[in-house]
Design a protein around this nucleic acid. Structure first.
Length: 273
DNA sequence: CCCCTATCCTGAGGGC
DNA sequence: TGCCCTCAGGATAGGG
């Protein structure tokens, strides 16, 4: 479900509601998420005050002045929301976390259970971030040559490179197709066959696509919502994603759907070379 | 090291 | 109705 813009929206709306809140009683379901979750460690966060909620790419960090902090990945269908304690529970609720001195609680709902929770210290967090590529939301121009070099070193299709969080973070399956459309690049082109100049256009296009989506609070096509439960408004701005056989907005040629590494890619055969 | 496949899950929607 | 198929914002172990 959530890519960089959606996760950043969740981080922003969680930060608004959780900053300076004290965590109370913790409850979890008995289903395992993507991995077995060490709930005992997470329970140690009871009574901590949340200092902020931040993100890097698709990873959320619920920070507190003391350690550990809480790391979360939403997977495909994970939703983190702040709700009234009395509001009805949705199916597949896996975590409820009381917010002391309020009528509300933090809830995690995830039907497919591809999400992840982990208590981690600053050292572990640093190690995780070190392995990931640069964040297009905060890209320093000094990082661009190395980023291009890494993409150019790969013989994989450019669409697959964009999805690799070790190369760069925040782009997922929607925005990979969208960025390549904006940059007019065929998603099947190999990373090693793209020029420096074109990579600069691609990076800029990807940033534009992500910024627009964030401005619109993300894309909701089925279940994504922010921490207030509000849907994203970016769906109408998408150019190619899930528009198979519909006319390209630029040249009217029907949009094509192909499969790359078992995932859908959408593009215009005329506009993208 | 790099690359590819299969896999973890539930639910929505389409065809028959 | 029901049954079967495909598809869905992600990431990772394991094989070649």
């Amino acid at each position: 479900m959530p890519e960089g813009p959606e996760v950043k929206t969740v981080a922003r709306t969680l930060d608004q509601q959780l900053k300076n809140m004290r965590l109370g009683n913790f409850w979890h379901s008995d289903y395992k998420l993507r991995r077995e979750v060490n709930y005992q460690d997470i329970k140690k966060l009871e009574n901590r005050v949340i200092s902020s909620v931040t993100c890097y790419g698709k990873i959320l960090f619920i920070n507190s002045e003391e350690k550990p902090i809480l790391l979360t990945q939403l997977g495909m269908t994970g939703r983190l929301t702040v709700e009234e304690k009395t509001s009805p529970l949705q199916a597949h609720t896996h975590i409820r976390w009381d917010l002391l001195d309020t009528s509300r609680e933090l809830r995690y709902v995830d039907p497919r259970r591809f999400g992840l929770f982990e208590a981690c210290d600053q050292e572990t967090k640093k190690n995780i971030l070190n392995k990931l590529g640069p964040d297009l939301f905060n890209l320093d121009t000094k990082q661009i040559p190395e980023l291009i070099a890494r993409m150019q070193a790969s013989k994989r299709a450019i669409k697959e490179i964009l999805l690799d969080q070790n190369i760069l973070v925040g782009v997922g399956n929607i925005y990979a197709s969208e960025a390549l459309f904006l940059a007019k690049i065929n998603p099947q082109r190999l990373g090693c066959d793209i020029s420096n100049k074109l990579y600069k256009i691609l990076i800029k296009s990807a940033q534009q696509v992500l910024e627009l989506a964030y401005k619109n609070s993300g894309t909701t096509f089925s279940s994504y919502v922010d921490a207030f439960g509000t849907e994203g408004k970016n769906l109408d701005f998408l150019q190619v994603f899930q528009r198979t056989n519909q006319a390209c907005y630029v040249c009217s040629t029907p949009i094509v759907r192909i499969t790359q590494s078992n995932r859908s890619t959408f593009y215009c055969e005329v506009c993208q070379k």
